[in-house]
Write a protein that binds this DNA or RNA. Structure first.
Lengths: 153, 153
DNA sequence: TTATAATTAGAAAATAAATCTACTAATAAG
DNA sequence: CTTATTAGTAGATTTATTTTCTAATTATAA
């Protein structure tokens, strides 16, 4: 377990906002040499603190702005059923996120498609064909008020 | 509105998985020249298709692995109340995502903290001090089955 | 068909990443 | 208190990548 000092936290703050900054730019913001920035980033990558660097897309511009939160209850909670369900749901490209959660429902899914037509297709042809699903409940996104991947350190 | 051809889609697929690949690596995967890759990425960035490049962190390793989904109902739905609520909730670092949704509740929040103690702090000191909240319901993440930022094109 | 624009390739220039060596500060051992 | 030892940093050098430029090719519209 790597211990993060205040400089590491500041560095992670900047990298979570924009990972395409040069080490030179970061060195100015952190009052460090370029090498020091470079070594710190490498350490954070090697230690798995930084898991990856990715490009984020604009959902609207790629016409995938129909977001639905699907709550799902399984018919049973036997180990086999759970494993089977999770395996199948993970394969679905429309499901960006799937969480096993506490409460009335067992799972919460974030599903992303183009429009209601595509969502219907997804429900009929993909989600409801998955085994062991008891009941589902869908809440549609009316507006995205906030969405960030940056964790405050 | 930019029209994406199959090469653009393939490029976005790779960049959403790893944005630190060199243009040379991408040029091989796409059977293009380095310049062609470069120009396509620039076009996607200029057009806002790619909104940004970010570093993603490992929640567990930075000790922010206590994820809660908070459903919130407002006392009223007047324009002023809605604007006020959304403004305040957006300011909270623990709230990574906030969606206005259809259904029984008005909003769905994804909240990320270290542990239950921090969550209690968050609820008492931050969330419930926000104006116009009627009722809330919290579902805790037991396990993250799937989590990707990559939209299938 | 011909003109125009957009895309691409390859070379050159500019910039950044990665490596290396040496220096400094902090910590532990004698 | 002094001396190793280690971790972290700075600056210089090398290597690699990005960016720019020019020319050629392809696609599109007149």
């Amino acid at each position: 377990m790597i211990q993060l000092d205040p400089i590491d936290k500041k560095l992670l703050h900047f990298l979570q906002k924009d990972s395409k900054q040069t080490n030179k730019e970061l060195s100015h913001k952190l009052n460090l040499s370029v090498t020091a920035v470079y070594e710190r980033i490498k350490k954070l990558e090697r230690g798995g603190i930084i898991s990856k660097h990715v490009a984020l897309l604009d959902k609207k511009k790629v016409h995938k702005n129909f977001v639905t939160f699907c709550s799902i209850k399984l018919v049973q909670h036997s180990k086999d059923y759970v494993i089977d369900f999770e395996k199948q749901v993970t394969k679905l490209d429309e499901v960006l996120e799937c969480y096993h959660i506490s409460g009335d429902y067992d799972y919460l899914l974030k599903v992303i498609v183009a429009d209601m037509d595509e969502f219907r297709e997804f429900m009929v042809k993909k989600l409801t064909t998955i085994s062991h699903i008891g009941s589902t409940h869908s809440a549609f996104m009316i507006n995205e008020v906030k969405h960030t991947t940056a964790i405050k350190m």
